[in-house]
Amino acid sequence: MDCRSFLDRLEALLDETLGDDAGRAAEEHLRECADCRQLVELARTEPDGTAIDLPDNLTGSILERTSGSACETARDRLCDYVDGSLSGIDAELVRLHLDGCEPCEGLALALVSLAGELPTMAEIEPDSAFVSDVVARTVPWRRRLARRLEKLTAIRELWPRVVRRPRFALEGAYVGTLVLVLIFGPNLPLAGVPQKAIDMIRARPLVESERARDGIARFEGQVVSSARDIWEATGGEVAAGSRRVATDLAQRYERTDETRSDLGRRVGELVDAARDADPGAASTALRGIGSDLGTLWERLASNESEERDNPVRR
């Protein structure tokens, strides 16, 4: 039997109306539970008007056993109480509990402080380059390339000024020496390569140079032979085509002799009209020039030889 069941049967126990089995269970519980034993002793004491020494926290102990922990109940409602969203009677009960319970009161104070503190932690300012970095990651690659090219242009403009400085030669020599030492220096992968190259050249200089000369001569012979083959295959046709074009151009020029003569005459008339300040004659001369130019173009563009050769097409 637990304390709750015992308390349910307490009145029957005091009235001695409890059954045998229930009585035995209650007696057994009393032997094990000091709080309930103390409660029964108090209940059996005859009230004689003298003050009774109650055990510490008797009410709390009984309430805890019957209704659960007051602190747990209060803490379930503590957030709503701090937020002011708890209804009247519940808020009053929590307030009364807090008045008598130091740990729960401290917890409520902490909740109030946190409610003010936490929202201020929402924003943390990143460093000043944050926005530019994001923008750099969002712009298309063409714009990024353009920006890099701008930087390259700036470097190119800076380069002549760097070169013109008096100490540039000294710096160049220093850097060059450093590079050579870093590449071919002792204990490096390319160490000894220059010496090996020199040794190789010293060992077989004549043989290698003759072999190279023979190779170049063979290559030259192949190039000349290929060029001759190409000319023989296509040179005749190219020459004949060139002759045809030249003949055609000459014929077209001859066909415009008469028109060119008329055009020269019209230009002379226009000059005379301009000199005499005669608008009518100038207008006539201009119309004649326009007509002659049209005729000139038609004769240059027309293919009279083909038309003569193929009269059926007309």
Binding site: L107, A110, L111
Partner: peptide, 19 residues
Amino acid sequence: NRARIELATRVRALDPSYG
């Protein structure tokens, strides 16, 4: 609510005078 109570309890454990 549980999270708020847990945080308040932990803060009070670190500094009993908090709040």
